[in-house]
Design a protein around this nucleic acid. Structure first.
Length: 577
RNA sequence: CGGGGCGUGGCGCAGCCCGGUAGCGCGCCUGCUUUGGGAGCAGGAAGUCGCAGGUUCAAAUCCUGUCGCCCCGACCA
């Protein structure tokens, strides 16, 4: 490809609206252009990169035995009603709008469990057809309240979504086996993209799945948190991160139990400020509801309850904050004055609370708190465990301190179970001749995010530094003066040779000064740059620059094509993570 | 949805308080010079100042409303 005949609108200045590096660089390098909030045009160079990502994903999905299909973006809202997700997704579900015609009954798919489950219901009748695993690479629509960070969070994006169908979890052809195969395929494909990714256990939530993993790329532009131990022996997402118990000093409390008036002061901050104590000296008493019963969580004042951990500790499916009437009935006080002393309910304390002495907490009496509260003497802890959100500095279960890193989620694998098949009555006959709902898995990858994550991970003050495998072009030839016959003929020759060798090459044949071409090449981030100029030609050489290492090789023109072709292949292999 | 900021040629911005001729840099077009790190000179094209009302002799500027975009938070299959 000749640059002069292509379309690469680079800019010197950074657009004011872009704040994260990948967004700024994608605009400056001429990869994307925003159309509205959360929707982007992929310009030629950006689209090439996206297509390369797509190819890698497709190859690995095919290799893992997933079968490609293509489902529509338009779905009948009825199917979403069947699974209860019209309500669950709320405004995220994009609807085609008013009137009393087909438009009002059509939604734009944010994901495709409903459509694929209906497909399975229609065609899969026997366990003998299973397992089946379908995937597609398709545009998704989500009414995100706040699109942000360029292509990292958009309302329209390209997703690879796969869905597997089984009659059993275990055994050959079961969910567990295919889940592992997808997990391995994801690892391979992210490696091939050259991404520094981390896999973490994710919270599977109230759906009831027992396994879920997220593939994360650490970067400050991310919105999720990765929790890792300093020694690298532990990694989880924030929702899931476990903490080891804290060390106590074994001493007993010394203060007497006392009631103090705290009129109108409900929050930890208000009470600790008023009583001149630290939040960590207070016991936070949060009342939840599970299966119609009150369930009380105790955590230290400077900690937060992790509802997933709490529910697991309590052995219930999920918990939700209790409504004020239940709280008032239980405590006999207004909301905001709950405490464990004398509270008649099932109470689960966080491990950290078991160590607290001379604590401050609600008195179960409006406008009153208690000071000098001590376990054993004033109240009893029958159940305790790890029920709080981890904070930086906690120790991991393996004993090493936890550090938090911001990260981008680029992939997610999930054991769904029968949530959708049961709701949509998608069943097939098992060996025993009885109909059973499919056991399902689902597996998603955000393709646009792979691009952005790669840029976040690999850029410098000059611009992008693409991994070879997903670079829009492997190599740029900077012909420093196309009017010099010797320069232009050699540049064209190298271009043709490289193209014939299967190298993605672009020839910068613009009538521009050398510095201008070099700046553009660095901004766009081509992994390799060949410089053909009369100065080098006078010595019988051309230069080959490697973007990442800065290494320069001086080569006789006759060796360039073979050297570059070999370097492209060896770099792709070397950059696998 | 709460809080904050911003809408002025393709891009980045000034002008707005204190109403009166729309301006600068980049980019673009023409010509000449220049060609190993974002060239120089000369000439030129391009903006109903987001939109709608209002105040005024007069509105980019003041007032009201509205739409859009960005950031923080909430939310996130």
């Amino acid at each position: 490809m000749k640059w002069s005949e292509y379309f690469i609108p680079t800019t010197k200045e950074t657009p004011a609206d872009a704040t994260v590096p990948s967004h700024q660089l994608m605009i400056r390098a001429g990869l994307i252009r925003q159309v509205v909030a959360g929707a982007y045009t992929y310009l030629p160079l950006g689209y090439r990169s996206l297509r390369k990502v797509e190819s890698i994903v497709r190859e690995e999905m095919n290799a893992a035995g997933s079968i490609e299909v293509h489902m529509p973006a338009m779905h009948p809202i009825e199917w979403w009603e069947q699974t209860g997700r019209v309500a669950a997704m709320g405004d995220v579900l994009v609807r085609l709008g008013g009137g009393d015609d087909w438009r009002s009954r059509t939604v734009l798919g944010p994901t495709h469990e409903e459509v694929i489950t209906e497909l399975a219901r229609a065609y899969i009748n026997s366990y003998k057809q299973l397992p089946l695993n379908f995937y597609q690479i398709q545009t998704k629509f989500r009414g995100e309240a706040r699109p942000k960070s360029g292509v990292l969070r958009t309302r329209e994006f390209l997703m690879k979504d796969a869905y597997s169908f089984h009659m059993a979890k275990e055994g050959p052809g079961g969910l567990d086996e295919v889940y592992q195969r997808m997990y391995d395929a994801y690892s391979t494909l992210f490696s091939r993209c050259g991404l520094p990714y981390v896999v973490v256990e994710a919270e599977s939530g109230p759906i009831g799945g027992d396994a879920s993993h997220e593939f994360m790329v650490p970067t400050d532009a991310g919105e999720d948190y990765l929790v890792q131990s300093e020694d690298g022996t532990y990694a989880a997402n924030l929702e899931r991160a476990e903490v080891a118990g804290l060390e106590g000093d074994g001493q007993d409390g010394v203060a007497d139990l006392a009631e103090v008036a705290t009129p109108g002061l409900c929050t930890i901050d208000e009470v600790s400020g008023f009583l001149k104590c630290q939040p960590r000296d207070m016991i936070k008493t949060i009342i939840y509801e599970a299966d119609g019963e009150a369930l009380v969580a105790l955590v230290r004042g400077d900690h937060e309850v992790n509802e997933s951990k709490f529910a697991r500790a309590a052995g219930v499916g999920f918990v939700r904050p209790a409504e004020p009437p239940m709280i008032e009935k239980l405590t006999g006080a207004d909301v905001g004055f709950a405490g464990p002393v004398g509270l008649k309910a099932r109470i689960i304390a966080d491990q950290a609370v078991t160590l607290m002495r001379d604590a401050v907490t609600g008195a179960n009496k409006t406008d009153c708190h208690l000071t000098g509260v001590n376990v054993g003497r004033d109240y009893t802890i029958r159940e305790s465990g790890d029920i709080r959100m981890a904070v930086e500095g906690d120790r991991s279960p393996t004993g090493s301190p936890l550090v938090f890193k911001k990260c981008i989620e680029i992939g997610h694998v999930f054991k769904l179970g029968t949530k959708y098949s049961a709701a949509m009555e998608a069943e097939c006959l098992d060996k025993d001749g009885k109909p059973k709902p499919f056991i399902m898995g689902c597996y998603g990858i955000g393709l646009n995010r792979i691009m952005a994550a790669a840029i976040e991970a690999f850029h410098d003050e000059k611009g992008i530094s693409w991994p070879m495998a997903i670079a829009p072009y492997h190599v740029v030839i900077c012909a420093l003066d196309m009017r010099e016959a010797e320069v232009s003929s050699l540049a064209l020759k190298l271009h043709d040779e490289l193209e014939a060798a299967g190298v993605d090459v672009i020839l910068d044949d613009r009538d521009a000064r050398p510095g201008f071409k070099f700046k553009d090449a660095e901004l766009i981030g081509f992994p390799l740059r060949i410089t053909v100029g009369k100065r080098g030609l006078a010595d019988g050489i051309v230069e080959l620059l490697t973007r990442r290492s800065g290494e320069v090789q001086k080569l006789p023109p006759g060796e360039v094509s073979a050297t570059v072709a070999g370097l492209v292949q060896s770099t792709i292999a070397a950059e696998r993570t």
